[in-house]
Nucleic acid binder design. Structure first.
Length: 427
RNA sequence: GGGGAGGUUCCAGAGCGGUCAAAUGGGACGGACUGUAAAUCCGUUACUUCGGUUUCGAAGGUUCGAAUCCUUCUCUCCCCA
């Protein structure tokens, strides 16, 4: 199956420039996707692009992953309703290095003709002077053309304005495409559907400047069926960096997908074949409460992004925390094993002296251990019946906690709502 | 440079001298129901030693009393030059 067909049946394809498919079928084609270093880790929102590159390479083409050292300095207005703050050079350097390391996990950089390659647009922009740029690049596109882009139009219509810096972003990205086309034989740029305008600026630049031909392909923006934003949890974005989002939380994120979402996402974020997926669909439909789809999805991605071992740990934690395992399960367990289960779950340290005197539950969770940002909030949540200690609901705000709550003389398991666990370590 | 409109609690957006910790909607969080799903219903949504304390762009001022009136400053948007 060719690349475009693959994306199509998986529901990933959004838009494709006429002729792209023919070009791809003509042989090994080089294509690229850019990642801007706005943070020092990618998040699950980037995963679609990563999967696109993986499919691209699997189909025999040559993928380039571009890290936007230069574009990151400018800021893409696409999809942003307000002017963005510029990042400092130091932060950008750090971010670039981290993102590069993450991307290296997903593609094959040593397989001959279609080995993946990493490039950084800062390399060709650092020596490019402003005057040269506006003469060599800016001259080929009219402002009229640039203003017609949705990303720009929205900002002009809105009431927060658009700086010249962000306005020129599309030219920078357009030039990237030109550069890669000219020097690396890169014929295709891919990206999320919000990148269509930027990508087309590139093909247009190639056409006008060198009468060359280049192509564009965009993928669907991943949404949840309930219309809310994909990739967010109560604690923010879901990152690929285990230091930002632990493998356990990462696993939980996917496991919590709704049935509809799981069905769509498993097609996008795993490499499972059509047959496998249909079998899973059927299995899920027969017994939805087993959540076969969610489990398969979470397993596949957790292993790809983290590791088999991280997946195993996440499973163990999940089974204990969400299974009907009673708190007794922990009793007598070695500290190391217990901490293993709580690996990736937020932990707080409490001194033994404080506890031995007895601590009011609100002081404990709202102050000593910041399970809640303030005591008021802790109080409200307890009154609302949303807090448990060692899997038993906290009765009221007057409860005093002391030694008797300790598990193995050292731990207390706190729960905010059903899904949020915290481990208090007393020593 | 000239003229106009504005900056309110996470967001949008009311309030226009006391009854305002501030309507309403959204979001978020929690509860019930479930399958750690969806839908639905309900509750919470500044801090607190529960006496109070700090909030409505900033600083002053008027008043018994201001988010609401006045002054200056500041930021944003729009129109004109």
């Amino acid at each position: 199956m060719n690349f475009v067909e693959e994306l199509r049946w998986r529901g990933m394809l959004h838009d494709i420039m006429p002729g792209t498919e023919e070009k791809l079928n003509s042989g090994v084609i080089a294509g690229y996707i850019g990642f801007d270093p706005t943070a020092d880790s990618l998040h699950v929102g980037h995963l679609t692009q990563i999967m696109t590159l993986i499919h691209f390479q699997k189909a025999g083409h040559k993928p380039y992953a571009l890290v936007g050292g230069a574009t990151g300095m400018v800021g893409d207005p696409s999809g942003k309703s307000e002017e963005r703050n510029l990042l400092s050079a130091d932060i950008l350097n750090h971010n670039q290095a981290c993102i590069k390391a993450q991307l290296e996990k997903f593609l094959d950089f040593g397989c001959g003709a279609n080995s993946a390659e990493m490039v950084n647009n800062y390399d060709w922009f650092k020596e490019f002077s402003f005057l040269d740029f506006i003469r060599d690049v800016g001259k080929h596109l009219t402002v009229n053309y640039m203003m017609a882009k949705d990303s720009v139009k929205k900002r002009l219509e809105g009431d927060s304005g658009l700086s010249f810096t962000e306005f020129s972003y599309q030219l920078i990205q357009g030039y990237d495409f030109y550069y890669l086309w000219k020097h690396k034989g890169c014929f295709l740029q891919m990206g999320g559907s919000d990148q269509w305008g930027n990508i087309v600026t590139g093909t247009e630049l190639i056409r006008r400047k060198d009468r060359g031909e280049a192509f564009a392909l965009t993928t669907q923006l991943i949404k949840k069926t309930d219309g809310t934003k994909f990739g967010k949890t109560e604690s923010g974005a879901v990152w690929l960096d285990p230091a930002r989002t632990s493998p356990y939380k990462f696993y939980q994120f996917w496991l919590n997908a709704s049935d509809d979402d799981a069905k769509n996402w498993i097609r996008i974020f795993t490499l499972k074949s059509k047959e496998e997926l249909e079998a899973l669909d059927a299995e899920h439909a027969a017994a939805p409460n087993l959540r076969v789809l969610q489990k398969a999805l979470a397993k596949d991605i957790t292993i790809r992004v983290h590791s088999e071992a991280d997946y195993e740990t996440a499973i163990k934690s999940s089974e204990f925390l969400f299974g009907n395992g009673s708190i007794d399960f922990l009793t007598g367990m070695s500290d190391d094993n217990l901490l293993g289960i709580f690996d990736g779950i937020e932990q707080f340290n409490i001194s033994k002296e404080e506890l031995s005197a007895g601590i009011n539950i609100v002081d404990l969770l709202g102050d000593k251990a910041k399970v809640f940002p303030s005591k008021s909030e802790a109080k409200k949540m307890i009154q609302g019946g949303g807090v448990s200690l060692n899997k038993a609901k906290v009765g009221g705000v007057e409860e005093v906690i002391n030694h008797s709550s300790l598990i193995n003389n050292k731990f207390i398991v706190a729960q905010k709502g059903k899904k949020n666990y915290y481990l208090l370590i007393v020593e």
